[in-house]
């Protein structure tokens, strides 16, 4: 018998038996129960489930916002939780390794498109000119450079979400967490945004985890994790992806 070994890249996100509960005794609510999953570079993964199934909690835990109750989390090869937070500077970790995309884009209303992207680089210590150059480059990459001076209030939903994606990519993160990234968009624009995310994952070797209810974009995901009552129920590999 011949066994062929295929070299697989190390997963960027490793979640092993992670649980999270709120409250104690009678008031205890198990938001996550022994959830384990891995996401490799270049993969675009969906977290699916009804309301209260633990999708956003899982996203918060992976994004180092919420401390899990137990389990083990490794991000880009770095153990960040193993019964307790191991990485004390979680803010710096988020800045270096994780990019966030929000349902309502969450652009800072007092900054124009370029500065909304550049602000992440400023926080990371980039010089102003360098931050601006990289921001314009990203806006151009996401085909929204023509709106570089526009304030968020004047952007369309699709444009705002593309600026938000540019902001998420600003600091070269390898893990991108998206919370309902297409919920506020029509199907055409939702498709464009998902294609952009797939392009980012492929070209920048990033892992993308998105919480979604949006059935019209299911075919854009490589894998779909189904959550129910805090537990990972099934995993579907997308045959269309």
């Amino acid at each position: 018998m011949i066994v062929s070994e295929v070299t697989r890249p190390a997963p960027l996100v490793q979640v092993h038996k992670v649980s999270k509960h709120f409250g104690e005794d009678e008031t205890r609510v198990d938001a996550l129960r022994d959830v384990s999953l891995e996401v490799s570079p270049g993969q675009v993964v969906a977290l699916l489930g009804p309301s209260g199934s633990g999708k956003t909690t899982l996203l918060n835990v992976i994004g180092c916002i919420l401390e899990p109750s137990s389990g083990r989390i490794i991000l880009d090869g770095e153990v960040v939780y193993d019964g307790r937070w191991l990485r004390s500077d979680l803010r710096r970790l988020r800045l270096e390794k994780v990019g966030f995309i929000f349902q309502f884009h969450n652009l800072l209303p007092f900054l124009n498109s370029t500065d909304n992207v550049a602000v992440v680089l400023n926080l990371a210590g980039y010089a102003a000119a360098e931050a601006k150059r990289r921001a314009v480059e990203l806006l151009d990459y996401l085909d929204v450079a023509h709106r570089r001076d526009a304030m968020p209030a004047s952007l369309s939903g699709g444009e705002a979400q593309r600026v938000a994606i540019a902001r998420a990519l600003a600091n070269h993160p390898r893990i991108i967490l998206a919370d309902e990234p297409t919920a506020a968009l029509d199907s055409q624009r939702a498709g464009i945004v998902m294609d952009l995310l797939r392009k980012v994952a492929a070209e920048q070797d990033a892992a993308i985890l998105a919480v979604t209810h949006d059935e019209k974009i299911f075919d854009r995901f490589d894998r779909i994790f189904h959550l129910r009552d805090g537990a990972l129920e099934t995993e579907t590999s997308n045959v269309f992806g």
Binding site: R91, R94, L95, F100, L108, F110, V119, L123, R167
Partner: peptide
């Protein structure tokens, strides 16, 4: 508050 939460999420320090 939402902008402050966003800033914190993208890595802004308490000092900022």
């Amino acid at each position: 508050l939402r902008e402050i939460a966003t800033l914190k999420l993208i890595g802004a320090s308490d000092r900022t």
